[in-house]
């Protein structure tokens, strides 16, 4: 287990280095110069030269990469091309928004998914079929489109929640919650159907095991068989699904932050990509990669914690 963890940790570090570096790789592959792209077609050669010099773009790409890496190690993610602000400080205010959104979505996904999955595992074939239908629908409906539909229903037709905008938790916990309900539902509902299907299948698999027969025969209560034993055994494969779902939720934040105009990392990433603001893109990619890698590591650790055989 320890060697596996060490290997995973090494791989995580590798991913952490590779992903933000890809911008430099893409730049190397790109035929054009980023300064040209930034300034547009009407720029003069002098303007391009001047911009290149001020961003350090006239240096070799490898030097730029080394410069960026050493900056990262000192907590400096560089300066935005478009705003001139330090990237790190800009992202630090945006991180909580994305984390709130992703965590809230997972809360929705796990509560609905686990509940529906358990319910359908113990109930008749009709509910089981419904879970199948829902899980296909959950895969098929794009979360951001579902989000717009939720806005139509619960912000425009019935003005129960704000259509757009974000209120920090510190200024008003209630408004913070209200601003997150619709986007979290939009992301969480689709993931919930995935978790529900997996929960149902894993619970049914667990209930089919010999130990469940022995437990029941010797008088263990049905609620203990289901909630203590079957759920515990099902949670081992389920934790992987939850990890995959969290990464899916992070992906969805990029689109949902755009729908709901939330000032998170995702909307900043799409804006920065549109404006070719490479330092910001690199910084956000580092943040996202850290979150994905951390999720994978937590799943690995949870595996060992949940499954005595894996310790």
């Amino acid at each position: 287990m320890l060697s596996l963890l060490a290997r995973r940790l090494a791989m995580s570090l590798l991913v952490l280095v590779i992903v933000p570096s890809l911008t430099f790789l893409f730049e190397a592959l790109s035929p054009g110069n980023i300064a040209e792209t930034l300034l547009g077609q009407n720029a003069t050669a002098a303007q391009i030269r001047q911009l290149s010099r001020s961003f350090g773009l006239n240096r070799p790409l490898l030097w730029q990469y080394g410069h960026w890496l050493s900056g990262v190690l000192h907590g400096d993610l560089g300066t935005s091309y478009t705003t001139g602000q330090p990237v790190a400080s800009m992202l630090s205010t945006r991180l909580p928004v994305t984390l709130s959104l992703a965590a809230g979505s997972m809360l929705v996904a796990i509560v609905i998914g686990l509940g529906l999955g358990l319910l359908s595992a113990v109930s008749g074939p009709r509910l089981r079929r419904l879970v199948d239908v829902l899980s296909v629908a959950g895969l098929a409906i794009p979360a951001f489109w579902l989000g717009i539909n939720l806005v139509v229903l619960f912000a425009v037709k019935i003005p129960a929640f704000p259509a757009t905008g974000y209120v920090p938790f510190a200024s008003s916990p209630l408004q913070w919650l209200r601003s997150l309900v619709l986007p979290c539902l939009a992301i969480g509902v689709g993931l919930a159907t995935l978790i529900a299907k997996q929960t149902r299948d894993q619970i049914l698999t667990a209930l089919d095991q010999d130990y469940v027969r022995s437990l029941r025969a010797n008088g263990a209560s049905e609620s203990s068989v289901l909630l203590r034993h079957a759920l515990r055994n099902a949670s081992i494969p389920l934790i992987t699904v939850v990890g995959v779902s969290f990464v899916g939720a992070l992906t969805a934040t990029v689109f949902l932050e755009s729908v709901f105009v939330l000032p998170g990392l995702g909307s900043a990433l799409s804006l920065a990509a549109q404006e070719h603001d490479l330092p910001t893109v690199e910084g956000i990619s580092l943040y996202f990669t850290v979150m994905v890698v951390a999720t994978n590591l937590i799943v690995d650790l949870a595996y060992g914690w949940l499954d005595p055989r894996a310790r």
Binding site: V15, I18, T251, V254, H276, T289, V292
Partner: peptide, 24 residues
């Protein structure tokens, strides 16, 4: 296998947006 592990651990959306940032 290791190589596949690394690819699997990459956040797809981030890589795609990086690409758009450069190859507009």
């Amino acid at each position: 296998g290791r190589f596949a592990d690394i690819l699997l651990a990459m956040p797809i959306i981030v890589v795609l947006l990086m690409l758009y940032a450069i190859f507009a």
